[in-house]
């Protein structure tokens, strides 16, 4: 069954500035997440350089047998990562449109949010949670 497990946001310099799990993931500690963020940031950058064809913008999707990891990097260098059930549809669009919109609205427009710093914005959390819950409901998944 398709499901969105978690969302991570990585800033330009590779620091994890947001992490939220929507479904409990087995033994996923904050340290692991921080490590994942910085490793992903580096791999993403290396991939751009290693790509045989010009115009590569980095890794967009990592497929494993138990999860898909989608990555969307904005033109400003911020990365949004989503861990989802394998073959979950429309994650690209969700990141590109909905999540990025929410970030622009509730994080960047919050005058007390400092850019590049960890995101602690209640409104972002709420709206994100509602969005994901709505997506899950559409798939018949109840929180």
């Amino acid at each position: 069954m398709p499901a969105i497990y978690a969302l991570y946001v990585i800033n330009k310099s590779g620091g994890l500035i947001f992490n939220k799990e929507f479904v409990t993931i087995a033994s996923n500690s904050l340290n692991d997440t921080l490590r994942l963020a910085s490793i992903w940031h580096s791999l993403h950058a290396i991939a751009v350089q290693l790509a045989p064809a010009p115009g590569c913008t980095g890794i967009e999707l990592l497929r494993a047998d138990t999860f898909d990891l989608h990555c969307f990097q904005t033109l400003t260098g911020t990365k949004f990562l989503v861990v989802a059930e394998p073959d979950t549809p429309d994650v690209e669009a969700l990141l590109r449109e909905t999540v990025y919109d929410l970030y622009a609205d509730y994080v960047l427009k919050n005058p007390f949010y400092e850019v590049e710093m960890p995101i602690r914005c209640e409104l972002f959390d709420q709206n994100l949670f509602n969005t994901i819950a709505a997506v899950h409901r559409r798939w018949g998944l109840v929180h």
Partner: peptide
């Protein structure tokens, strides 16, 4: 520096 993301997100503009 904040507005640019709003612009990119809402205008769906590419490179």
């Amino acid at each position: 520096i904040r507005l640019i993301d709003e612009f990119l997100a809402k205008s769906k503009t590419g490179k």
